[in-house]
Design a protein around this nucleic acid. Structure first.
Lengths: 196, 196, 196, 196
DNA sequence: CATGAATGAGCCTTCATTCAT
DNA sequence: TATGAATGAAGGCTCATTCAT
């Protein structure tokens, strides 16, 4: 059973013993090894599955022929929604997968790169008709920043549950999208004297 | 010796054996226990020290009677600078401290709350003369987002070393501060039709 | 199927898993247990069968109304021939059965005693007309020595395949039978000054 | 403690648990690993030590400027004596080391080759003044046979303790040395009609 | 009857932690 | 005081052995 995600999320990789996982899953330890291989492979499988689900949720929401900002908006909403409904999954991806130093470290964070790529693509798309259109790869730092801001807000959210997924997503849109719009239109901040 | 930070950062918490730490530090294991207590306590002490240094670096840069945007700017610059000069420290704080599931998990992330508080204060301060001044605690989500964006950019930076600390800090200022400015001045994004 | 002999010979007793044996045999594991009982019993059954075949081969060759030396000669020849044609069988009997420390250890080496008995009988028979005929049980040490020499030569043979079964058998006859003949005829070696 | 030899000899390699070895040795398991490394390494170390002692015992006895037959005689005597005083050691070398199929299998049987080489040298030396002197490497089959006969007798001895080391050694000398002497002097056995 | 699926028990190995010197 | 030496406790993994189908 892939409710091993629960145990990993609850105790971390090393503190999670295969005994506890097998107990929680309701099967015996040899079954874990028969079906999922070693502990490393089990962990990797969990990460893969959860990452795929998260990416699928976001991708599904951003599809369609909406405008970039609408796509981003829906993507953020679905991200917050998915995460709030899959706490353990998020803990696994965010807290544990980033930390493990093992042969598979590449795969552990691949999902993040996919998300960044998705965002960067939207941002670039948004500049298409602007004065100075930009390439996708110049958008990456902004995409990374937006992704990080989202992740950070999710963590904070769990400590302040009185906010809604949509409320947080809208806050992020306001903060980032507006600033991004300014940027595209040529208004920018310079070190010795910002606007506000 | 607190060069245990190096070992923790290099191998992670569990892979770092007390043997290796004591060897690297040049003392014997019983000394580690005499001075720092258990492995958990040692780790906590490391986190505390590194967190204090990071917060000190940022606080030192934001002090003075500068305008809020300048303070934020200097804070971000010094954050990126400090992190780039203390890779191990950052790895410890960001990658390891967030993951541990132990009795001290509260203290492990306290530094983050301090940083958020600092940013939130600056943001609130920036609205003082605006049409609708806001309280510090309403700024927290934005501060959290900014902090997360910064952390995320730092990680990304290590894979793209051709950027400078100032360059990244400026990008963040442009993205966030401008959007924040719009917000303060009443321009905002609404779900069914953003600006750009 | 008793092709489990192959697996035992190939990997040794402990390295041979019941899974591999059942796979190689083309039946399922429960069948193994239904027909042959436990792993120990299976091993014992293999040893018994192979031992019986070996003893049969030797006994068949030594039968008849030949002179003792001819019987011994044919026995040795057939031993070398049988072993070279049943490598796995020999590995099982010689390398594995001697090692096992189980309740059946008696049966594991019974075949060896049979062979020794056969040889001792021949040796005794050879002294029938001599000056001092001897009983079978006084011949046993010599028989044991001859048996050991044969086994040892077989092992050595597998590393020096350029010898023939008959060549080795003849060498053994020359070495042992001649010495035995001397002995029977009263010429013997004494500690402080042998013959050559 | 290298009284692990006892446990290995008593139960075989696989049945001997590190727990039992450490208990028997009077130390804790981690000490075993600290001093002797893994179970494989421990076993190898035991074999190496016991093999060295056995070879030393035999070599020590065969040295000097004695005639070849005297050297052989003393070698056999010391072999039987050493083995009877070190039962566990012999079990390890003879019963276990020959069976293990591991990376070190080369070293496991090296002692045997040394013994064979020693014997072959003595045999060749004995033919120096004879009608047809022979090279050492033509003596190897005889040496192998003699070694095997000795080993076999030792095993048999443990079941018939009423014999003495010297008695068995003398029997072997009579059987092999006399036959060997005949051979050197040109008397040989031919398939269709031996001497006795 | 024959088997896929399941497990209890145990082994090797490691490491945080502590005495005796 | 500082340390080399020692260990209790556990964890990952495997395998002989048996049910439910």
């Amino acid at each position: 059973m892939d409710a091993a995600v629960e145990v990993f999320a609850a105790h971390g990789f090393h503190q999670a013993s295969m005994d506890e996982i097998s107990d929680t899953a309701g099967v015996s330890k040899p079954m874990l090894y028969a079906y999922l291989g070693s502990k490393d492979e089990l962990f990797l499988a969990c990460v893969r599955r959860e990452a795929a689900q998260l990416i699928a949720a976001i991708s599904g929401a951003t599809g369609g022929d909406l405008s970039p900002d609408e796509q981003l908006w829906h993507g953020l909403r679905s991200f917050f929604a998915h995460v709030s409904e899959n706490r353990a999954s998020w803990t696994l991806l965010h807290r544990l997968a980033n930390t493990r130093e093992n042969p598979y470290s590449g795969e552990m964070t691949e999902w993040r790169e996919q998300a960044v790529e998705l965002i960067a693509g939207l941002l670039a798309q948004a500049t298409t008709g602007a004065a100075q259109p930009v390439q996708t790869d110049q958008m990456r730092p902004f995409a990374v920043a937006l992704a990080g801001a989202s992740e950070s807000l999710v963590d904070w959210w769990s400590l302040h549950p009185d906010h809604t997924a949509d409320g947080l997503a809208k806050r992020l849109m306001n903060l980032v999208w507006m600033g991004f719009g300014d940027l595209v239109e040529g208004r920018s901040w310079e070190p010795s004297g910002g606007r506000p």
